[in-house]
Design a protein around this nucleic acid. Structure first.
Length: 475
RNA sequence: GGCGGGGUAGCCAAGUGGUAAGGUCGGGGUCUGCAAAACCUCUAUUCGCGGGUUCGAUUCCCGCCCCCGCCUCCA
């Protein structure tokens, strides 16, 4: 079954084949964060979608070379550093660190490169690109000293978003004091320095200033991956103008098709509206962790809905995700237990063995990352296995095969295993007291201790191997 | 207004021209000192609305309604 992906450019599902003649290497560029604040979970939904894509590509044998940029200079970062009264680099560095910590919490694989816009080499590359565009008449310096891209000189402008330029409407969200532009749609490649920028400035052939946002990605992508990319991802809100601008700038310089597959992730919603910093209706990862949820629970919750469908974030959804993961955990634990048993000399009667390790999970993901279908395959397998175990129809060999299958698909899902939490001494002491009470069959005391543990946020379950204690999640 | 995405059980969500995966909640059961957990099991004559094509449509076609996003800060 071929891998098919929905290409925003063509608005159709297309079979995926990388540019690499050997059909192995995939060059992937993913728009990263602007480090002026903590990323919110809507941002992470996009990064999780990209992680799922990368992991699935790898499970299908591709070598993914991925770049994710860090935007560490723009209006917001400059404003932030000014109001904090510290240099730009100092201001952004804590948010960079937090971003990487959050990636780890969510088990998002690291990209091969995380270029930063302010790296001298990147700034130089941006200036080179702008020079080329000016030489070719695709850009011009306006009276305000800024350099703009001349969209009327680039016939393809608007094709990704499928916009008719003559019908562009201003939303009034951006202050339109840029009367110097030839066309309202012309976008800044180089922003001339002004007093608001303070010490943030680089020299250029057009005077001091800083790069525009769009050119950053064009420069960093081509520096690290070459003129042509296989896949470029981002949120749907990047389609226009950001990705449209990237195409215009990059192809204006190289004359070659920049990106072969454009993939865009729908928004995370909250109360039926887009989660965004400007609306103020956002949660950071830290906010959700503070409610007692783990990174893998957030990962699951944000990954379980198809990337092109809007996903409404709710605490109920978090709870559903937690329960679903518990079901997986219990199943894996049960399989491990069974797998460790030696098979009896006599084969188990009517044993059910997976005749051939199914690829239903991967097949579903081949269909434009149909995660719901893939999870359906997983949960059906869980039910079948549990039933077979109940009926004594699954022996240790079969359990080992199932486990191997699970390990394979979990390289894509990356949700297995709860993070182990160390028990505080106080809790250990209470638990020990309860064990003693139970041995003495002092049920009332046992129950009181259970209540006490519960009040402290720890859940006790009695199993045939004694009591098990877990941190109670939620609320 | 233009361009997209979506409307399937209480909630979340797959899917197919032939009669609706899965998760979660809820009901029932097994287990248990009691619980919890775990496991099993039941729960949509029906897929936004109205037409049409068809032996048959949730799935194809036409029209309409509603929600959300983008239209130069945004993942």
């Amino acid at each position: 079954m071929p891998l098919r992906l929905f290409n925003t450019y063509s608005r159709t599902l297309e079979e995926f084949h990388p540019l690499d003649p050997a059909g192995s290497e995939v060059k992937m560029y993913t728009c990263g964060p602007t480090v002026y604040a903590h990323a919110h979970i809507g941002n992470f939904r996009a990064y999780l979608f990209e992680d799922l894509l990368q992991r699935h590509l790898e499970s299908r044998g591709f070598q993914v070379r991925r770049v994710m940029n860090i935007t560490d200079v723009d209006d917001k970062t400059i404003q932030g550093s000014r109001s904090a009264g510290i240099p730009l680099a100092e201001f952004t560095s804590s948010f960079k660190q937090a971003f990487f910590a959050d990636l780890d919490t969510l088990r998002i694989k690291r990209a091969d490169h995380f270029p930063e816009a302010t790296e001298p080499g990147q700034i130089a590359a941006m200036i080179e690109m702008i020079k080329t565009l000016v030489e070719r008449g695709l850009a011009y310096q306006a009276e305000d000293k800024s350099v703009y891209f001349r969209i009327n000189k680039f016939p393809g402008y608007g094709q990704l978003a499928h916009f008719d330029l003559s019908e562009l409407r201003s939303t009034g969200r951006v202050k339109s004091d840029e009367y110097d532009k030839e066309h309202v749609g012309d976008f800044a490649l180089w922003k001339a320095w002004d007093e608001e920028d303070g010490a943030v400035r680089w020299e250029s052939p057009w005077g001091p200033g800083r790069p525009g946002w769009h050119i950053e990605c064009s420069a960093m992508a081509t520096q690290l991956l070459g003129d042509q990319l296989d896949i470029h991802c981002g949120g749907v809100d990047n389609i226009f103008p950001h990705h449209e601008a990237e195409i215009a700038q990059t192809e204006g310089c190289t004359g070659r098709k920049f990106v072969r597959y454009w993939l865009h992730c729908a928004h995370l919603m909250v109360d039926g509206q887009k989660m965004s910093k400007s609306l103020g209706n956002f949660y950071t990862l830290r906010d959700v962790l503070a409610k007692g949820y783990s990174g893998r629970e957030v990962r699951y919750a944000l990954m379980r809905v198809h990337y092109r469908a809007q996903l409404n974030f709710t605490w109920e959804g978090m709870e559903e995700s937690r329960k679903a993961l518990r079901r997986i955990d219990a199943w894996v634990a049960r399989l491990r237990e069974k797998a460790e048993e030696e098979n009896a000399q006599r084969p188990t009667p009517n044993v059910q063995r997976p005749t051939e390790e199914g690829s239903g999970f991967e097949d579903a993901l081949d269909d434009d990352l149909n995660i719901s279908g893939a999870l359906g395959v997983l949960f059906e397998t869980i039910s079948e296995t549990n039933l077979a175990l109940d009926l004594g129809k699954l022996d240790s060999d079969a359990a080992r095969l199932r486990l191997q299958w699970w390990e394979r698909i979990d390289r894509v899902l990356a949700v297995s295993g709860e993070e182990t939490v160390a028990l505080p001494a106080e809790i250990t002491a209470l638990a020990e007291a309860r064990t003693q009470a139970r041995l003495a069959k002092e049920w009332r005391k046992s129950d009181e201790l259970r209540d006490e543990l519960a009040a402290k946020g720890w859940e006790v379950r009695d199993t045939k191997d004694g009591q098990k204690i877990t941190r109670r999640g939620g609320v």
